[in-house]
Structure formats: structure tokens, C-alpha cells
Design a protein around this nucleic acid. Structure first.
Lengths: 305, 305
DNA sequence: CTTAGGTATGAATTTAATTCAAATTTAACA
DNA sequence: TGTTAAATTTGAATTAAATTCATACCTAAG
């Protein structure tokens, strides 16, 4: 009766605190999860959660099953990795390029986990900025690009990672501080602080400002923290992934606003040649990124695999 | 994709070595198990077993998943026990009566496991022989009888354990040594060696010899080993559970034969008052007996729970 | 070359999980 | 005190998955 699926559900509920979010994370409807949990409760004739309008709280029985999940799921994942390795050459090379600057934030724990899982694979970060990172794949200079999907995906294969919201970052006393979301026009005549990359690689410019023909000043900084300092000292506004700015927002250095009517979302993929993406360790890299990021980055949504 | 159900299947296959037997043990058809395993193999794109006309052998990948099963299933069972305990009083008393003499063989490991699981419950064996053990339940002298179902089950509740085959035991040079199975008539004028209990409590007499009106001599011995020695030294023949005689047969002290055309099978239940059998630790006793015996006694078949 | 004892297969069936479309609950707000 | 928003529940309909049934297939032994 109890199945691994249930344990995964419990884990998702624990991580999100809400049935709806948990359901989304494991690609079910909220209703399905409700039914599933209810079936468990009926089966064991025990209550697993205290429900309220703010979410679920584990009862001791629920906690006991959650403990089981936390004990079992890592073992299961390890076994599944072992199975993959049993049928494949375990060694290889994996040169990673990041399209997106902020991704450095989570890359370190990912690389650590990957090296632990695939000690025989040589992982490297391809250094420097590249105006067309996907080109490096065909040129044999890199194995995987982590970024958005390129327009022409000739001979390239991709694995879905997650999507995240890019939010506008303002100083706390900015004139727009009371709007709940900023529209393209709000950026007119503002100074936009970005990483030093071409405009076509900056989502807010490509997808919001340019289409609306908004004129603005641009200023660049290399590091996220430098950008935040510029914003905090009222030199301009920025647009950054919600998970990259959380700390600064919590400490009231800056405030964050949604962009556009439904938010500005960006999707991340692991992209490589078909030959490379067929390798088990490349698939596993994607899995590890999804795992690590789902655990560490608040507000992201995993894409359907 | 991988579910606990699959792990249970793998365990059953490991224990039986054959798809058909494994399927029976987990109450599925052979076909269902075959489909299930095939689905796993397809999913991971890996072969789990080498099939042959004598059964299945685990490949390294299969073994890896079996290892996972052996690691996980005990943890899961422990959690389920904890859930039961979370909703119930954990203490109580459990006085066990054995209807069947040979059952002492497996009772010790069962009691050990039970004491570990329910340290607060006082377990006792009700000593001595009782001509009507079920009566002790209503008299308040015992809590659970382990034996066959009584004819009148007034106010009694039972939990199914397992069934086993009772086989005839002969000295290796007996005149009937070449028959593959003994019929009632074969016992005519033989000496039957039994435990010292009334004839109505000896299955072969009640179900085979008496209906066929066979006359025979009876001789008794207290212990299984004593009965075996009498048989080996040609003082008579006996009828004992297949699992109780395995050792002696393997060492060629004695030989074993099926009884009747389809074998003589006996079923074992845990029987108690409704009040007692509703208690979680009584249900758990039955589960422990099933588990321990399925693991230790060759040739038994678990009854549907 | 047949049989016995095992597994595999495909279609039909049954069972279980999931979705869909409300309904309900509850706290916060005006 | 009603209204809304954000959550969960519910029951019926749907979809997907597991299981069975009936039979085919395989292989070693006689």
C-alpha cells in the first residue's frame, strides 16, 4: 500500500508546506495529492497532517513517515545511479559553460554533488564570456551549456532544468516603491544596472524594454553584490533572478517587484550535442542540478523533465 | 517508476528462485510478476535476471536492486509498526497456546522478534497439553491459539498464517521406498509414531486413516528427534510437517513421501477472542509469524491475509 | 521427440490513480 | 458582518496502470 510515490509526495509537502506547491513540484494536480494523502490516512487509519488555510503541518505520525522518506529516498537515488553506472563507461569529460551570470551562485554545490557521484568524470567550467556559447558545443570547446534554448537547435539536445522569475530590484525609497509590479513604461529614463553582456542576452531588455521601445541608460557591474550596492545607493535599478536577491530583500537593502503583468520568467536547460546528452553522466548532471536547485533556491519551478 | 511493490517482488524472487513461486508468495499470478519485472527492465533499460528453465538468476543490476530491497523493506516495516504504535496502547499481555507440537520448532525466533517489536507486551507460552485449546480463550487462560480453525468459532476471530504439507516419514530401506506417494492403504498394519496427543488431533489419522478405516498400531514419542530415531531404526513410520524433517531427509536418515493423491496439507491460524485479535500487537504477532516462517521454513505457503 | 517445468506475451479486464469542476473551510480585511 | 483570497476536500469522470487469462514459447531431461 505504501509506495515510494507516497514518500516523494511527503517530501515535497515538507519542502513546500502546501499541497498545491508540492503537487506542482511533483507534476500532479493538487487534487491528486489530496486524494493520495487521504488514501494513506485511510489505509493506516491515522491522521498525517493538520490542515489549515495556510497549509499543512505534520502530525507525529506524518513526521514518522517523513522520516522514513528522508531515510529511503537518498538510498533509492543512489541505487538508481548505480544502475546507470552498471551499464556505462563511468569516465569522461564534462566542460560546462554558463550562459547566465547569476548561475554561479548555485553551481558550486552542484559541482560538488556531481564530483561525488561521478568521480571518474573530469568536470570543468569553461571560463570567460562567450557571445554565442552554443557555438562552443559544435566547436568542441565545451560539452554542456547551461542556459536558455538557442533559436536554432541544430543537432543539439536539451534536458529541462527549471524556470525562475526575474524581478526588478529598486532602492527601498524609490518613487515606484508602492507599485506591486513594474510595467515596461516604468523603466523609461531609469538607469538599468546589468552584467556586462550584450543587450540581446539580457532578458528584460530583449523581452520587455526593446519590444515596448523604452529608452533607458545602462550601466554594468561584474558581480551580483556590486549590482546590489549600486541599486541600494540609488544609482539605478536592476532585474535579477528572485533567488539571487532574496537575502538583500530580507535585509531591506532593496525591494523587489514583479515585471510585467504576469511576471518575467526565464527557463534554464542543459544543452549539448546529442552524442553528449545521451551519456548517463550528462543526464545525471541535469538531475543533480534539478535536485540541488529545488532544494536551495526558493521560488523556482522545476520544468517537466 | 520504481515502487516498493517492485522491491517486495525482488525479495520474493530471491527467496524462491522462481517466478511462479514468488508470485504465489506475494499473491499475484506468474504473468503479473513477469510483466512487472519486464517493466522494470524496460524502464532502466537493463537486464535484471538471467532466465532459464530452472528459474531466475540475478544479474549484477538485479542484485543491486535486491540489495536495495533488503535495505529498505525492514525500515519500511519498522515504520509501519511505529505508525500502529502511535495510535495504540503499547502494553498488554499475550499468552500463546500451541495446538501443534512441531510448531515449537519455529516459535523461538518468532518470540524473539516479537519481544523486540513490542517490549511492553508480556508474552508467555501456556505450558502443558490441552485437549481443547480454544476453550482456554473463553476461559481467560490464554490469549492466542496457534493451530487449525476450531469447528465452532463462537466469538473467535482468526488471522491466517500459512499452510504446510504433512509428509510420511519412512526408514530409507522401507518396503514402500519406491512409491512416490503413500495412500491410506499403505499404512495398514504399520506402526504409526506420533506425539502423545489424542487421535482426533492428529491430521493423518483424522483425515486419512480413519475415513479409510485402516487399522494400524500407534506408538508415541514426545520430541521430534525421538520420533525420527524410532523411524530410522525401523520401529514404525511417522507423518510430520515437511519443514520439520528436512534436515533428517537431507542426511538420509529417513525418506519422505507425499500422502494421498494431492498431499496432506494443514493450515495454521492465530486464533483469539475478537477483543484480543483487534489489538495491534496481536495482529502484529500474526505478521511476525508469517514473516519469520516464510523466511525460515521451506515448503510452506502463506495463506492470503 | 515428447514431457515437465519453467518463462513470455498480448488482449481483455479490473483496479487504481489522476483530473476536472465544483464545494468547502478559514482567516483576514474592509 | 459580509467579502475575498488562499488554501483543502469531494465526487464523478477519465485516464492510466497493473493484473489476469489463455496461450505460446523455451529448454533440459527422459
Amino acid at each position: 500500500m505504501l509506495e515510494i510515490r507516497h514518500l516523494k509526495s511527503l517530501k515535497a509537502i515538507a519542502e513546500t508546506g502546501k499541497l498545491g506547491l508540492a503537487a506542482e513540484r511533483i507534476f500532479l494536480t493538487q487534487s491528486a495529492l489530496s486524494h493520495q494523502i487521504r488514501a494513506l490516512e485511510t489505509h493506516y487509519d491515522i491522521v498525517l497532517f493538520e490542515r489549515s488555510n495556510i497549509g499543512l503541518r505534520f502530525t507525529p505520525a506524518g513526521q514518522r513517515l517523513l522520516d522514513l522518506a528522508n531515510e529511503l529516498l537518498p538510498l533509492i537515488e543512489k541505487s538508481e545511479r548505480d544502475l546507470i553506472r552498471l551499464k556505462s563507461d563511468q569516465s569522461g569529460e564534462l566542460r560546462i559553460v554558463l550562459e547566465c551570470h547569476t548561475c554561479f551562485d548555485w553551481l558550486t554545490p552542484v559541482m560538488d554533488a556531481f564530483r561525488r557521484a561521478w568521480p571518474e568524470v573530469e568536470v570543468d567550467l569553461v571560463a570567460g564570456f562567450h557571445s554565442d556559447p552554443w557555438h562552443l558545443l559544435h566547436a568542441g570547446k565545451a560539452d554542456v551549456v547551461i542556459g536558455g534554448l538557442p533559436d536554432k537547435i541544430k543537432d543539439l539536445q536539451h534536458l529541462a532544468l527549471f524556470k525562475f522569475e526575474i524581478m526588478a530590484v529598486l532602492p527601498p525609497d524609490h518613487a515606484l516603491r508602492n507599485k506591486s509590479r513594474l510595467l515596461a513604461a516604468d523603466f523609461a529614463n531609469e538607469t538599468l544596472i546589468t552584467y556586462p553582456v550584450p543587450e540581446t542576452r539580457i532578458d528584460i531588455i530583449r523581452q520587455v524594454l526593446q519590444p515596448a521601445n523604452i529608452s533607458f541608460t545602462r550601466r554594468t557591474a561584474e558581480l551580483t553584490i556590486a549590482i546590489m550596492q549600486l541599486v541600494a545607493s540609488r544609482r539605478g535599478i536592476a532585474a535579477l533572478p528572485s533567488w539571487g536577491i532574496q537575502n538583500y530583500v530580507e535585509h531591506d537593502y532593496v525591494i523587489a517587484k514583479h515585471i510585467g503583468t504576469s511576471g518575467l520568467w526565464s527557463e534554464l536547460y542543459a544543452i549539448g550535442t546529442s552524442e553528449m546528452m545521451a551519456r548517463p553522466y550528462a543526464k545525471d548532471l541535469a538531475r543533480i542540478i534539478r535536485d540541488v536547485c529545488a532544494g536551495n533556491l526558493k521560488g523556482i519551478k522545476l520544468l517537466a523533465p
